[in-house]
């Protein structure tokens, strides 16, 4: 006797947004990352954790189109045909990075133009995308500044007049305003005070959910990973040693290295 009304079949997308196969990058003899493969589906948030030097940032740079891997391929299914991002022309890859992707750098100075106003930083991405109507661009820029909790009267200020936390929120607005399908984040809360981190994390969590973004987040902070990600990959010495649902990996770690990582966390 079941009286539950079955909810409608969820729209589980039939195809992954990103398919990564056998990615390796070497620095001479040294391994950056080796033989990494995974699929990422629309709306999924994947965390990459591991200590510094484990290869997680190298991997992110390969995935995001910044550094060409020595082996392997990255297939992106934005619309229509899957695109092998390293076999297309440089120009095509750059266009993709400007429109369908977004990259949030650990240091906001790497993602912002420091001599351009806050409004200009956000509006620029829209112009890159082809928007030309000044009034609409300013309106959308304003809307996004509000969403990341930057007061309206700061729109003409330059990022260097902002605190670190505000700069990071501005960078996030700049990345998300063009409505990317996939966002890469490298330690998005690194270098911020704990109280500022909490606010930023909450903001990211809500934005990712509301926009249905797929995201790949590199972090060494397991609490950040637990709050923001659906899935985790644990990296050590350039290789993925364990992966799965975030709460599985953190609550029932199987690999020796993951057990070490999770047991090293001080809880407050």
């Amino acid at each position: 006797m079941t009286v539950h009304v079955s909810p409608p079949e969820a729209n589980l997308d039939p195809e992954p947004l990103l398919s990564v196969a056998g990615i390796s990058r070497f620095y001479g003899e040294r391994i950056g990352c080796q033989d990494v493969s995974f699929d990422l589906w629309p709306g999924e948030v994947l965390g990459i954790v591991g200590e510094s030097g484990s290869g997680k940032s190298t991997l992110l740079r390969c995935l995001a189109g910044i550094d060409r891997p020595d082996e392997g391929e990255v297939l992106f299914r934005g619309s229509g045909q899957p695109l092998d991002i390293y076999s297309v022309a440089e120009q095509e890859r750059r266009r993709l990075m400007r429109t369908a992707w977004g990259i949030v750098h650990q240091n906001p100075r790497d993602g912002l133009r420091m001599d351009v106003s806050a409004g200009g930083n956000v509006g620029e991405r829209l112009m890159d995308r082809g928007d030309r109507h000044y009034g609409k661009i300013r309106e959308r820029a304003l809307d996004w500044l509000q969403r990341v909790e930057i007061a309206e009267n700061r729109i003409d200020d330059r990022p260097r007049q902002f605190s670190g936390g505000m700069q990071q929120r501005l960078q996030i607005a700049r990345v998300l305003v063009s409505e990317p399908r996939l966002v890469f984040m490298d330690e998005p809360t690194g270098g911020l005070d704990v109280s500022v981190q909490a606010r930023l994390l909450d903001l990211l969590r809500v934005l990712v959910r509301d926009l249905g973004l797929a995201a790949i987040i590199v972090t060494h902070d397991l609490a950040v990973a637990r709050l923001l990600t659906d899935r985790l990959m644990v990296m050590k010495d350039g290789r993925v040693v364990e992966q799965g649902l975030t709460d599985q990996v953190l609550d029932d770690p199987h690999h020796a290295y993951t057990q070490l990582l999770t047991s090293a966390v001080l809880s407050v």
């Binding site: 969820a10 589906w41 909490a198 994390l201 709050l227 649902l245």
Partner: peptide
């Protein structure tokens, strides 16, 4: 993972004595 998450969203609930507080 995405199937497990879908099962949890629609079919499987876990009630513990602890609330995971989100700021």
């Amino acid at each position: 993972p995405r199937t497990v998450l879908d099962i949890r969203r629609r079919t499987l609930g876990f009630v513990s004595q602890f609330l995971r507080v989100i700021p």
